[in-house]
Write a protein that binds this DNA or RNA. Structure first.
Lengths: 252, 252
DNA sequence: CGTCGGATTGAAGATACTCAACATGAGTGG
DNA sequence: CCACTCATGTTGAGTATCTTCAATCCGACG
């Protein structure tokens, strides 16, 4: 079966059978399981094995001197936690499991080998890091220039797209296993204010959010509320537009 | 003479003479000059030549549907504008010259050749993109979890370090050729509020800012006001710690 | 001297935060 | 099966931060 990582990377390029097999194989390395709240990688920790999320949901977060935590990004299946290991000394932030999470642990050397042998994969991984950066930029724009409701809507909409692209958004619903406190840490507001903002989105009939799952009730309305522009996700590549847009549906 | 790009990359690795020569040569490609306010690269624009900032100051910015602009990052000499060209179809944001700016235009193919021939350079460039991502994450933390004064102080402090590392921060002063409106767009607040925040930093005796230049009057105080933690810049590498820390001084 | 962009100030109002109380609901142990 | 606990979610009231709008000031420059 096709792994989430392969599905993600094939948005950028079409692999040969051999390439696909080798990328898929990355998900079959020894798997480590983490409980909710467990730290997968701690700030400052040097890493020798690459962590590939197989199942579950994790967050990249930084802890401020005053103890407050800010979630910087979400990690879902198919995401690599620590590609930076090749060049940086250690993590500059934490990666924490939000729900039961499984990671394949790939020796850095093996990734290195793969990269040096298959330049298509190298490019695809590069594409992946570049789009990650684009998502980060987009989040800066969100937090700098948009107000709470818009910001939250944007966050939901982006996750909806990401889940669809790995084939895991059935009926416009997807996992988001965070408490309201966690969501607040991700969207840069207090839990109280998040709660109120959430209620607005609910009463607008845009979403449902309970027990770690989001249901988007009005896709088009949510997109509008988010003032969403999809170009930053770099989803449309000429050759396989059809395949991607089929999965993304009417979202982008 | 050593170019800014080389100085920057040598924070990560020590080049051989040959490598240094080849990296330095990148700055000698045909140079394009841009006036203040001129768009170097527009959103949506496909790119075939890599833009390397030789002199001046430019901004990465996104324009929101409502017309508001949000500055996402600063580009100073030694920075590459559009490495993404290798993998992405086009820019997802604008790059705009803030002051007179000169960019060397390097054919993508030439960079490609360099990368394939000198793996040290590949790694160094990878390090550069990874630290750029780290800076983006840090900005998200800033805007999500810190208030105006802290945020602004952080921004100044980070620029001070970056300028020191390319040897262009004399007397703790450096160029920041933006109007208060521009600074506001960068720090995610209104011009009015930026003005007031700036006045606080001034009256605290931490900085001066006028006519596009920042002078840091109290480095230590600024660092404290910013609650600055340097690890995200990934400056300390074992082998040449001395050289980097000499340039960074007591900052990190 | 007049003009113009940028900087500064004031005042009113919106957005978001703090603190504190209370509600709910899923366990857990009696 | 109920009472208790604990984490999470919800609500209210008061406050702080930040925005908006509009007026004024300043300095560079023709």
């Amino acid at each position: 079966m096709t792994t989430a990582l392969t599905m993600k990377l094939e948005q950028f390029t079409r692999f040969t059978d051999d390439e696909r097999r080798r990328v898929d194989r990355l998900s079959r390395y020894p798997v480590e399981h983490y409980d909710p709240g467990e730290v997968i990688l701690a700030e400052g920790q040097p890493v020798d094995k690459i962590h590939l999320v197989i199942a579950g949901f994790a967050t990249r977060s930084k802890t401020l001197p005053n103890g407050a935590r800010q979630i910087v990004a979400f990690m879902i299946p198919g995401d690599l936690c620590d590609l930076e290991v090749f060049v940086l000394e250690g993590m500059d932030h934490d990666i924490v499991a939000a729900t039961e999470t499984a990671c394949a642990l790939i020796p850095a050397a093996d990734v290195m080998t793969l990269l040096s042998e298959l330049s298509t994969v190298t490019l695809a991984l590069w594409w992946s890091t570049m789009t990650d950066s684009a998502v980060l930029r987009s989040r800066i724009v969100d937090q700098g220039g948009r107000e709470a409701k818009e910001r939250l809507a944007h966050l939901f909409y982006e996750l909806l797209i990401r889940y669809r692209l790995i084939g895991q958004a059935v009926d416009n619903a997807f996992p988001l296993p965070l408490t309201q406190e966690g969501l607040a840490a991700a969207s840069g507001m207090t839990a109280v204010h998040l709660n109120r903002t959430l209620q607005q989105l609910r009463s607008d009939g845009l979403i449902e959010f309970s027990r770690g799952r989001v249901s988007v009730l009005n896709v088009c309305g949510l997109k509008k509320a988010a003032r969403f522009e999809s170009n930053y996700l770099h989803l449309i590549r000429t050759e396989q537009t059809t395949e991607v847009s089929r999965r993304a549906g009417d979202l982008i």
